[in-house]
Design a protein around this nucleic acid. Structure first.
Lengths: 215, 215
DNA sequence: TGGCTTGATCTGTGATCACATTTCGCGAAT
DNA sequence: ATTCGCGAAATGTGATCACAGATCAAGCCA
């Protein structure tokens, strides 16, 4: 039954976006088991769109498929976390560098505002809000790089780290002010590419260092 | 009807592997239109596994979904090719460097053999064979890096370039001996990481330079 | 003759069903 | 009290159907 009203981009698409967002923001803990019928029931749909959505998310590494076809949220090993962190450390400085020549003042201003919202989330111990604003900060900058393929690949990595990030930021309650983010903003204002690459790399590796350490 | 004999990893899985291989090796031209019923008929299956397979390949960027849900093999723009090439140039040297300390003689020997098979494929104007052996050469090396997440990400990029690669190597009939591959082997034998990174990067960018130039 | 409408066909979408397998809990035997 | 086994419930898989939108080509009108 395809209805396709103006604001109806197919049921499985809406389901996909919703689940993807929940995973990337860390609303689901690592190792959480999901079932096709459960998802379908929750969204008042049949199994078919649920299956397509799950298949898609599995392909992106956002969900893990057991040998018997059971699907769970991934519980990453330390090695895998290190790999994903290394990939972020390779790609994000490149995206930042490509965005640098296009980063006008309005963008830097909006980045600073997002930074303030991150501080708020830290203040309120709002883990999901923290993750959301942090990702939004990075995405906002990288969008300027005009490199959709790279950004898509990077978001895939964020996706895979989603549940684990939640496990981290839910545990580490220390109020961590966005220190490296201010370094990023400073490098952007100065137009200093090497400093920007360094600051981005530091921000990425800093956040993920705790993951393998505390696990 | 789930049968699951020992050698029966689900129909949609076999379908997926088959289609994925055909795409990565460039057996399908860019812009080729596919239909769920067509795929299902070709493999003597129902639409259901075809749908799951297509969904998966779309998620990996191996296939493109039009607004109306039509699925085609991707016809990449020059910008997108440049991005994917840049990603390869970021990731592959890193993987090679990680493989270097684990690259014993037997591996280098097998790489040299694969190199010979590449030369054969060039001799016989066998585009698909060329692509297959070329990818096998790189994969064999990167497997030693013990970095499955990075390798998976890289294969996704290869996938996206598949149809376009075919379009290139089918056109450029010039006998291109695996020049950079010999540089890679030399760097491996010498244990010289900087030279290895450089050689790998050169191999990647060299092959893909022609793509944007001749398009 | 050329552009446009209209109808048939094609294609993706979602629901539902049958079935094999896996999983889990309850109860019995040691 | 622990472990083993059995049966019921749950789960993924694949097939099939109805339906709506997209596509394409033939035919009509200007």
């Amino acid at each position: 039954m395809t209805v396709n009203r103006p604001s109806d981009p197919a049921a499985h698409e809406r389901l996909y976006r919703s689940l993807r967002s929940r995973i990337m923001l860390g609303e689901l803990p690592p190792g959480k088991a999901l079932t096709l019928r459960g998802i379908a029931r929750e969204y008042h749909l049949s199994m078919t769109p649920a299956r397509e959505t799950v298949r898609r998310l599995v392909a992106e590494g956002a969900l893990t498929l057991s040998a018997s076809g059971r699907v769970t949220t991934p519980a990453l090993s330390d090695d895998r976390i290190e790999e994903l962190a290394a990939l972020r450390a390779l790609i994000e400085p490149e995206l930042a560098a490509r965005a640098l020549p296009r980063a006008h003042f309005a963008l830097i201003d909006r980045l600073a505002q997002m930074n303030a919202r991150i501080a708020d989330a830290v203040e309120n111990h709002d883990a999901v809000g923290y993750i959301r604003c942090n990702l939004e900060f990075h995405r906002m900058l990288y969008l300027r790089a005009q490199a959709p393929a790279m950004l898509a690949m990077l978001e895939t990595i964020w996706l895979q780290l989603g549940p684990t990030m939640r496990a981290l930021y839910g545990r580490v309650k220390r109020n961590e002010p966005p220190r490296h983010h201010r370094m990023i903003l400073a490098a952007l204002r100065a137009g200093d590419e090497p400093a920007l690459r360094l600051a981005v790399r530091a921000d990425v590796t800093h956040g993920l260092r705790h993951l393998t350490a505390t696990d």
